[in-house]
């Protein structure tokens, strides 16, 4: 199935958002435009990555998707529901679950299984089904063995997986992860990304991953690069990373291998654009070496 045949889960058109600052009398005395006309269309089952530096508006965009913030201008439909309508909020939050940056500040209960059950409890799911959902969700993220543990005893990566389970237990169609790995060590980061990819591939859950780690976006179907409240680049990871210079201009780093390949190319090594993994680079270099040998002989 081609992605264009699929149903859109998120449709945003010309979104703007302004943060307002009020003076003591309650009048607006300052405003800051965090989003300046962002449009996006995410199909069911896609893995989308949103890249951007601090203050690029990516977190603001994420919060729109869960109706925690409502657009100041433009329209946003999540699972066909308008986020500006008050009555849709419950359904939208169930359809698009959200995982935040700090694992400690989003785990509500003091036992892992109870935290996973928090969302379904809020939705009014019957007790028996809550347990069913909690079991499935914790198994999906590989935290079932820890169901009776206190979150305080877990590592950062494990806590973040519990937070993801808490969202999955609500049976969302889409998960929005707002820099879920920013506070984790490399091991924890890999753990979380592996879990998210797994969910995307096996359960077909749409994933929107917001990050500023380039290594995490190479598996995405599509990458959006944001800067100063607007989408400045969009395409497959390979397309986006072939533009090393433009990325550097908006203070984003490219993956180390991509940068290495880019520098080699500058020195005259005939490499293609947008190399993403070490394997690709070694393969390309092997080809060149063989080519040289062939010519030499």
């Amino acid at each position: 199935m081609k992605s264009s045949d699929r149903r859109s889960i998120i449709e945003g058109h010309d979104l703007t958002y302004e943060y307002l600052h009020y003076d003591d009398d309650g009048n607006v005395d300052a405003s800051y435009r965090a989003l300046k006309g962002v449009s996006l269309d995410v199909k069911e089952g896609q893995f989308i990555a949103i890249l951007g530096h601090n203050g690029s508006g990516k977190s603001t965009l994420a919060r729109q998707l869960n109706a925690l913030l409502v657009p100041s201008g433009g329209t946003l439909f999540v699972d066909g529901l308008d986020t500006r309508e008050e009555k849709n909020v419950g359904a939208i939050r169930q359809a698009a679950g959200m995982v935040f940056q700090n694992p400690d500040n989003q785990i509500i209960a003091s036992v892992v299984e109870e935290d996973a059950g928090f969302g379904p409890e809020n939705m009014g799911v019957p007790t028996k089904e809550i347990w069913e959902r909690v079991r499935k969700a914790l198994k999906a993220v590989g935290m079932w063995e820890y169901r009776e543990s206190s979150p305080n005893r877990l590592s950062g990566g494990q806590k973040q997986r519990v937070a993801i389970a808490g969202v999955i237990a609500m049976k969302p169609k889409c998960i929005v992860l707002d820099e879920p790995t920013a506070m984790l060590d490399p091991g924890g980061r890999a753990e979380v990304i592996r879990t998210v990819r797994e969910l995307n591939r096996t359960d077909g859950i749409t994933v929107i991953l917001i990050t500023h780690y380039m290594e995490e976006v190479i598996y995405a179907d599509r990458v959006l690069v944001m800067d100063e409240g607007a989408v400045v680049m969009s395409g497959t990871p390979r397309e986006v990373f072939s533009n090393v210079r433009a990325l550097k201009e908006i203070r984003l780093d490219v993956p180390f291998v991509t940068e290495l390949a880019d520098r080699l190319k500058e020195r005259g090594v005939p490499l293609p654009d947008g190399i993403l993994t070490v394997e690709e680079l070694t393969e390309e270099l092997e080809k060149i070496r063989h080519g040289d040998q062939n010519r030499a002989s």
Binding site: I108, F118, E121, T127
Partner: peptide, 20 residues
């Protein structure tokens, strides 16, 4: 942060809540 996370997971007070 916690208030935001609770809201994102559909918390709206005690009414209509079931118990795990």
């Amino acid at each position: 942060d916690l208030a935001l996370a609770m809201e994102a997971r559909g918390y709206h007070g005690g009414a209509g809540r079931t118990k795990m």
